[in-house]
Design a protein around this nucleic acid. Structure first.
Length: 196
DNA sequence: TTCAGGATGTACT
DNA sequence: GTACATCCTGAAC
């Protein structure tokens, strides 16, 4: 299967956020390749977005990754215990990224592996609540993919984490406002959340 | 099914 | 010291 190249990310962030929907996210670890379809994304664009960590071009040790080349992985710790996975977009030195908020396993085998990494148990042993809310949040995704800030700064053209196209294009893309950014004033209402 | 509250560590003021 | 691109639990309905 062909891989998505870094060029894909060196474009308008909203376009990338939309086109990521339905793509296959692949993670190599422990001799396995975990695969999942991307179902929910959010765009963060530093130039005009108060919800973005690098709003107004703010450079700090943490936000430095957002200024890196397109296709760089940006992972940060949130609320002291969860990690969030982002893909850097736009040109070098233009701070912007797409947050991955939702995925779903491609196969039953993937589903089983995700359950192991996230809960340390088999999928069949999960509660109905856990099954219903399996991978619908950024913190859950990083746990299930065994990603931490150790992977911050890696590129999506390597073997650790990469993307593959899927044969079918999503039939309907829904749009909404982003989650968990109530502090961001006017940016609260930007329709920069995409899901299928 | 919804809701409030707490866990937890780091970046930044 | 404060805030945070979250998630889980337990109680009330």
């Amino acid at each position: 299967m062909e891989r998505i190249s870094l060029d894909f990310f060196a474009r308008d962030t909203l376009t990338v956020a939309r086109e990521l929907l339905g793509m296959c996210l692949c993670r190599n670890i422990d001799g396995f390749t975990l695969k999942a379809r991307i179902t929910e994304t959010e765009a963060y664009i530093g130039r005009m977005d108060k919800a973005c960590h690098a709003y107004g071009g703010k450079r700090t040790p943490r936000t430095e990754t957002l200024f890196a080349q397109a296709g760089t992985v940006y992972i940060y710790l949130i609320y002291g215990m969860y990690h969030c996975l982002n893909f850097v977009t736009e040109q070098l030195d233009e701070p912007a990224a797409v947050l991955i908020r939702g995925i779903e396993p491609l196969t039953e085998n993937d589903r089983e592996l995700f359950a192991r990494y996230r809960f340390g148990r088999s999928y069949a042993e999960l509660s109905s609540y856990q099954k219903k809310n399996f991978l619908n949040g950024p913190g859950k995704i990083c746990k299930a993919l065994s990603l931490t800030k150790e992977q911050n700064g890696i590129l999506l053209n390597g073997d650790t984490l990469f993307l593959e196209p899927l044969p079918q294009i999503p039939s309907e893309i829904k749009v909404g406002t982003r989650i968990g950014i109530d502090y961001a004033e006017e940016a609260v209402n930007f329709p920069w959340r995409f899901y299928i």
